[in-house]
Nucleic acid binder design. Structure first.
Lengths: 334, 334
DNA sequence: CAACAAAATGTAATCCATTACATTTTAGCT
DNA sequence: AGCTAAAATGTAATGGATTACATTTTGTTG
């Protein structure tokens, strides 16, 4: 394989000129440029990218750390990231953590070792101090999952107000006994959705009952199980807010299995607007996150950091949207 | 940042020895090794991975080329790839093509430029000759999508016999008027599934009618639309084989919208066993592909090539499994 | 045409780990 | 002790693009 020196010799110029033709063609006189280009053509020369990376200490690669790629929301965010990354000549390295913090830390090493130019965290089971430290020294963006009181560049939605909107929708439909199936409460994101639920009830002077709050783990099965707990209550809730769509579907399934109907007997609102939520029957009323957009914004924020541009806004909060379908009976009431 | 020379000086050895301590510790006397390790510790030395990559012309990175990451099957395959890759110290670069062959070709460049050590293609809208050529010169694995008569390392399922099994299941349940909704027929994979459908009918002496074969595009909507065509026929089919689960769901929806029932009025079998196929109502009878396993095998096959080991088996065909659920009435008939 | 600024090009150091080959040390044995 | 083979370590070249700085060429203007 020909190298730059070979090209330089053939074109009768210095390697510096060859390099310039490649990196910054305007800096070279047209006559010379053509000469060099011909030599490149003739030798079928391709720059050694690895040498360039080494010399530049830059890899044009960013790392996306994600708990699991087999998931309904992450692939869409990754698609958004990839889209913007590609437009700017960056490649995307996949960092699956399999929920293991150790794994996540190992990815941070890659960042420290400059194997990647930046990192987007789509999750955070990481120590607060570690993240703060890393984010100060390297380009990092936190997406979706917030960490309280952290001054790290972040792209997220307002989980509190989104959840509040979902619950208020149920309240407006006349429900007052509303159960919630939360996600794992060790995550701030899930606590926020719970907080939104509480705020909605408080604002409407509806009492909050502990028995109407059950913690799930984001799976369909947990939705099913928690719903069964609700249905076993003496006074069952007439509406449910599930912290994600999978649990909402599980909950609906539980209702159906009791020969009851959704939305007639129990109304259900989900969260995420996963692809299947509109196919599911009844089609799910849910909160849509701008997943693709979050991915895009994250990458844009990361690029700014990589380029050393000042960040005017470190924390980006994107709008969500309540998608009204059939699972809470809105269409029938109107 | 300290480099290897600094460590060598501090430990009073040569850089060669430091390098050996890192790469091949057994080759260094214990006393020396400890000395070097202490120096590394003291200087907080981290090897410059980029320099290593450059020197070794190897990046410990592989590329997965995929038409879209927002999809029901690819993420699982990628997870399998990632799993094995991680176990062997390899990283996974994501190559989303957005269905654009141009994009795919650009990823091949990365392989040629040695930016990655190998490539797994989860799709192939690529020229046959190009793939053959590339596969001869670099480590490449084709997964899922076959190309006819190609001697490239491949991991796949037997789409023909799997489809045949699905259709035979319907035949055994007493159906003889069976429609098929295919995927895009410019893909061999989809033609194979159609071929399996034909074989099953022929083997059971059921006439093949052109009007009972409709081409969809893998989407839920196309399943819905093609099913409506079937339902508009004078003699409607009593069973449908859809080439993937999304179309199967769309087809079922169309049946329901006509106030008919699945499986009572029309039985439906899908293909893929996506996550939602068991949540969907009726739960989908479908062919399960070992997606994770295919990913794993692909990576293993790629690793062998990277290591230069001889490939005893170039073409791997993994078993599929018919998952019987509720959409074709098997459970009721028995 | 001289003089000078600007544009173009060249020189050579640099990034840093790896490794073929050379040299030294160690260990085992007579 | 002396010898040899094996083990351990060292020397120095290598990979190839980039770029600060130096030098040459070109173009402009009085």
């Amino acid at each position: 394989m020909a190298n730059m020196t070979d090209v330089a010799k053939l074109a009768n110029v210095s390697t510096a000129t060859v390099s310039r033709v490649i990196q910054n063609p305007e800096a070279v006189k047209e006559k010379t440029r053509i000469k060099v280009l011909q030599a490149i053509e003739e030798l079928n020369y391709q720059p050694n990218i690895l040498a360039r990376y080494f010399r530049r200490t830059e890899t044009k690669t960013i790392l996306v750390v994600v708990p699991s790629i087999v998931n309904n929301v992450f692939p869409q965010m990754i698609a958004g990231i990839d889209l913007v990354a590609g437009q700017h000549g960056y490649k995307v390295l996949l960092g699956n953590t399999y929920q293991d913090p150790e794994k996540a830390y190992s990815y941070i090493e890659e960042l420290k070792q400059k194997q990647v130019d930046g990192m987007i965290l789509l999750t955070t089971r990481l120590d607060k101090d570690v993240i703060t430290d890393i984010a100060e020294r390297y380009p990092v963006v936190l997406t979706s999952d917030f960490i309280e009181g952290l001054n790290v560049p972040t792209v997220a939605i307002d989980n509190i107000s989104s959840a509040r909107e979902a619950v208020e929708h149920l309240l407006q439909l006349g429900h007052s006994r509303i159960g919630m199936i939360t996600g794992p409460l060790n995550s701030l994101l899930c606590r926020d959705r719970l907080k939104g639920y509480r705020q909605a009830l408080l604002a409407n002077e509806v009492a909050i009952e502990g028995v109407l709050i059950q913690e799930g783990d984001h799976t369909y099965e947990s939705g099913y199980n928690q719903m069964n707990k609700f249905l076993a209550l003496e006074e069952t809730p007439t509406a449910i807010f599930a912290a994600n769509d999978s649990m909402a579907m599980g909950a609906i399934k539980a209702v159906k299995d009791q020969n009851m109907k959704v939305p007639e007997d129990v109304a259900v609102v989900g969260f995420d607007n996963i692809q299947f939520s509109k196919i599911f029957e009844p089609a799910l009323t849910t909160i849509a996150q701008p997943l693709l957009g979050m991915g895009k914004r994250s990458m844009e924020l990361l690029l700014k950091q990589i380029k050393g541009e000042p960040l005017t806004k470190k924390q980006l909060v994107l709008d969500t949207k309540l998608i009204i379908r059939d699972s809470c009976g809105y269409n029938k009431q109107v």
